[in-house]
């Protein structure tokens, strides 16, 4: 009898503690995310509603969105973003899985050299060498095409992705499985596709998430290479709004543009959240 009361007390204590923590967290996140909430509420106002932004969600109109949609040439920019991101990530995954697996399995000095050589690339920033990059792509005749940012997105993501893939193969693909396949007469290619690829799926998800989101959001390479309006991506057309910042009367439309450019990836996140969380952690927690 006495025991159960102590248990009940404990449970009550835990319950109260949980409520307090939850309330504290709610307050913290409301403050932390307030810039997003205020800009969202502002984007839902008519362009001429200039009352204080602190009076949140007092008007729901899509007028600002309409104006921003037109100015962004939305569907064209969206298509450009999708083409560039998907091509980059697809090439990246193929190239990185092959290299990452191979380097993990080349068990000699060349293997360890390659691992360090690829990792060292993380130290390079694109700003350091964008002009020679431009010269090389120009010499091949593709400096002003979508191929230019695609090739550079693949390249700039290689170092981290190879590093992640090598670690994942070493920790999660049992060498004995591959040996068994070899004894059964499977060649390297078949072993790779039937045994290795299924086992490194979490690493592939991690590469898609950790590299795909920044590629989708990047403006630097597209800004450097895509000059014709018809090629511009969503982040790039956002630069057209910089002038609006000087003019307080344009902020509603500017915020609408911000949300329009974020909506595609927010939708993807809403549906594939599970993969985002596991993808983010595969690299850092396992490695």
């Amino acid at each position: 009898m006495e025991k159960t009361t102590i248990k009940d007390q404990n449970r009550k204590k835990h319950f109260i503690r949980e409520i307090i923590i939850t309330v504290v967290l709610l307050v913290f996140f409301a403050i932390w995310l307030s810039p997003l909430l205020i800009s969202l509420s502002a984007s839902l106002r008519r362009p001429d509603n200039l009352s204080s932004y602190f009076k949140m969600f007092t008007e729901f109109s899509l007028e600002s969105y309409k104006a921003a949609f037109k100015k962004m040439n939305y569907f064209r920019s969206l298509a450009n973003s999708i083409i560039i991101t998907f091509s980059s990530v697809a090439i990246l995954v193929v190239v990185v899985c092959l290299a990452g697996y191979a380097i993990a399995r080349i068990k000699n000095k060349v293997g360890s050299f390659l691992q360090i050589f690829f990792m060292a690339g993380m130290i390079v920033a694109a700003q350091m060498s964008i002009v020679p990059m431009y010269k090389i792509l120009n010499a091949v005749g593709i400096a002003n095409t979508k191929l230019a940012p695609i090739l550079l997105y693949v390249t700039s993501s290689i170092s981290f992705s190879v590093f992640l893939c090598i670690n994942f193969v070493k920790s999660s693909v049992p060498y004995s499985l591959e040996e068994a396949a070899t004894i059964d007469g499977a060649g390297v290619l078949r072993t790779f596709f039937t045994i290795v690829v299924p086992l490194i799926k979490p690493a592939i998800v991690a590469i898609i998430i950790t590299q795909g989101v920044p590629i989708w959001n990047d403006f630097f390479f597209s800004m450097m290479f895509l000059s014709t309006p018809t090629q511009k991506t969503l982040p790039l057309v956002m630069l057209n709004f910089i002038g609006d910042m000087e003019n307080a009367t344009q902020w509603n439309q500017l915020f609408a543009a911000c949300y329009l450019s974020a909506v595609p990836i927010l939708i993807v996140y809403a549906f594939l959240q599970r993969y985002f969380i596991s993808g983010l952690t595969a690299g850092a927690v396992k490695g």
């Binding site: 995310l33 997003l36 989101v213 989708w216 959001n217 990047d218 403006f219 969503l234 982040p235 956002m238 630069l239 911000c258 450019s261 974020a262 990836i265 927010l266 996140y269 985002f276 969380i277 983010l280």
Partner: peptide, 10 residues
Amino acid sequence: YIPALFSTIV
């Protein structure tokens, strides 16, 4: 995680 989804420009 939501802020991480927005582009640097936004």
